[in-house]
Design a protein around this nucleic acid. Structure first.
Lengths: 333, 333
DNA sequence: TTGTAGGCGTTATCAA
DNA sequence: TTGATAACGCCTACAA
């Protein structure tokens, strides 16, 4: 069943059928109805591949993320898909992991599928060594590249980021003002936003008149329990701390479990601030004070930006907005 | 840059270029190298739309789910995308919500994009009134339909389900054997698997020689906190219970928060069993005993099944496997 | 308002 | 081993 079959059955040319399908007004009402009746009767649907070939687009956006099961990224995917679909775009999902070689490979693959643009979620796509970002610059030559929570300068590259620096700065400052003396910073990785967060921590410590002691900055690996055990070990080794700021909620949960294991009272003996304000923040007891970095806002902004790029409007290369600290039971301020 | 440009530059016909691209062996090594050199030099990539038009496939699978930010569904999406990509298929994601009209609309939309198959995650796609499943039967006439955690009989429809009935039956039975007398069952919805779970509860209660009292079966709506408040209210209204079995982890977390609010000791005053064994189960304190319904297994099975369907192999219409109960701190058995 | 014909870039068939 | 050519199904000038 193709456009020729329809045109025959309706007794018109394929051009007329095409006009009806695409809502072209230059068709008499009578012809239009005739064609629509046939289309309905035969259950005809235009072939998307043929259309794609002619128009050179299938209204498809590639969404890349390291891991779609991560709660934060899963949220982002949800919002992006919703916003894109509202604009009649489909989303092709591609989970890349964290290895450069794989990221490169999949980005190329996505482009070879002729997506109209690529959205990269998470700062893990930005490599610390800018040479290694060539794969993104290359991609931007073919399609617009939208970065969420990562930033890179270049033609056809648009970034939407949360002010992670300020968010952590404010978090740490609040802890200092509430009397905390030894504030740890726990992180998983030093991605683009990872570095910004750490800088926020350092700046707040110095601004608060405290010593910047690198032993209070620790990278954690592994599961919730492994991170918890790591904290227990640090404590046994003689490290004392009365507050923990983390780069994500899962590390904050680990800190909470550490407190439980060591019979510390939260927030009095130990204050904790998480990041992302994910569902995890509400599962634990007490519930986590956590930084809400506004995924939904970011995703809406990203898609809006993209649509404006498509329609040839002028668009800012970088958008930054501020986070909220959602106060719950793991802090007293 | 198309196949003609390459053929000209290499001094061969487009047929030969096509052969080289597709690894057809009927090309002399010399010609092959010549063509490959040109392709590499020009950075040529075959146009996926044209290919799709000719082959009538773009190696794309539609994945539908009600809400990709739900931790359980997010996991499923992750595993499906991974497995599909290993088989050289792309995934188009489509979040539909829970309304029939929207599900119908999006399923049609996906088919109109000529996906090679559709995977529906979650039993919410199966309507209690079978008449309303027409949209799925219709879809199965055009493409294979794979159901994960839902079951429907029909040509070209393949179901992969976890034995939810047995899982809840076993959970409740274990609670009875450990001395629990008043076991509540909490659920969000009576979807296909929702019904199976409830049946498992009822059967276990009867088999355990207890009274089947409908007041112990409650549907909950809303957030974690709303469900918690609902339980508090039930308790204030005089309902007593010493165990809670839930249809998902988030309700189990609510039960845990209820216990905390009412100063009940878990698991001694109140035992709790969740479902899905999601990340939430590990965030709370004590950690949740939860049913692991093997999402990864289900997804691997679904994709394997699909690939066998594609290659014309005989394939079982329905696969069922059993769940595990992961014992943690909210039960004492 | 309608129709004709060319182009989009492949793959595949059939000859050579 | 290679090449010419016909599909694949649509959109859209351009012509009528």
């Amino acid at each position: 069943m193709n456009i020729y079959d329809v045109s025959k059955a309706a007794g018109v040319s394929i051009a007329t059928v095409s006009r009806v399908i695409n809502g072209n007004s230059n068709v008499s009402e009578k012809t239009k109805q005739k064609v629509l009746t046939v289309i309905d009767e035969y259950g005809y649907t235009p072939n998307a591949f043929a259309r794609g070939l002619g128009l050179n687009t299938m209204q498809t956006i590639g969404i890349m993320c390291p891991d779609s099961s991560d709660p934060y990224l899963a949220d982002a995917i949800y919002y992006l898909e919703r916003e894109l679909r509202q604009n009649d775009y489909d989303s092709i999902l591609c989970c890349t992991g964290y290895q450069l070689a794989t990221k490169e490979k999949y980005l190329k693959l996505l482009l070879s599928k002729r997506v109209d643009a690529v959205i990269l979620i998470g700062s893990s796509f930005i490599e610390p060594n800018d040479k290694n970002n060539k794969y993104i610059y290359d991609a931007s030559k073919e399609s617009p590249v939208i970065l969420i929570n990562g930033s890179l300068e270049g033609a056809n590259i648009y970034s939407t980021v949360c002010d992670d620096y300020q968010a952590v700065y404010d978090s740490v400052t609040s802890l200092i003002q509430s009397g905390r003396k030894q504030i740890m910073y726990l992180f998983h990785s030093l991605s683009y936003s990872g570095i910004r967060k750490l800088e926020g921590y350092k700046a707040a410590i110095l601004k608060g008149g405290m010593n910047l002691d690198e032993t209070y900055i620790k990278q954690c690996f592994g599961t919730i329990h492994e991170a918890k055990n790591y904290l227990i070990k640090l404590n046994q080794d003689g490290l004392n701390f009365d507050a923990v700021v983390t780069s994500d909620d899962s590390l904050a949960v680990s800190a909470l479990k550490y407190a439980k294991a060591c019979s510390l009272s939260v927030p009095d003996d130990l204050s904790i601030i998480g990041y992302n304000n994910s569902i995890m923040a509400q599962c634990c007891e007490p519930e986590l004070t956590s930084v809400d970095n506004k995924v939904e806002t970011a995703c809406i902004n990203a898609v809006t930006t993209l649509m404006r790029v498509f329609s040839g409007n002028n668009v800012p290369a970088k958008t930054m907005f501020s986070a909220d600290i959602v106060k719950r039971g793991t802090t007293r301020f």
